[in-house]
């Protein structure tokens, strides 16, 4: 999936736990069902944390791209 296909993009690079999860959820809460959210984060825990939050909130993780120091998430709002 490409960043250009996302409805909303979020740059969370440089933020530490819990902010990537908190801000990702806040963005999802403001979106319509079926829309795509693109998130970039550098927090090493976010690779596990964001999927855990998505699982619990019923939102769909489409893809994680591990770009070395940056993780990119494609998320579909439930």
């Amino acid at each position: 999936m490409e960043k250009s296909e996302a409805n909303v993009t979020l740059d969370l690079k440089g933020l530490s736990c819990p902010m990537p999860v908190v801000k990702t959820k806040k963005a999802l809460d403001g979106m319509q069902a079926g829309q795509i959210l693109f998130v970039e984060a550098t927090d090493k825990g976010s690779k596990a944390d964001i999927p855990a939050m998505l699982k619990r909130t019923g939102n769909e993780l489409i893809e994680i791209e591990d770009k070395g120091a940056v993780y990119a998430f494609f998320i579909k709002k439930k």
């Binding site: 736990c17 819990p18 999860v21 908190v22 959820k25 806040k26 944390d49 939050m53 619990r56 909130t57």
Partner: peptide, 12 residues
């Protein structure tokens, strides 16, 4: 506060 803010983001 970290656990609380994270938990509400997980619909807890």
């Amino acid at each position: 506060l970290i656990l609380a803010s994270t938990a509400v983001a997980m619909d807890v």
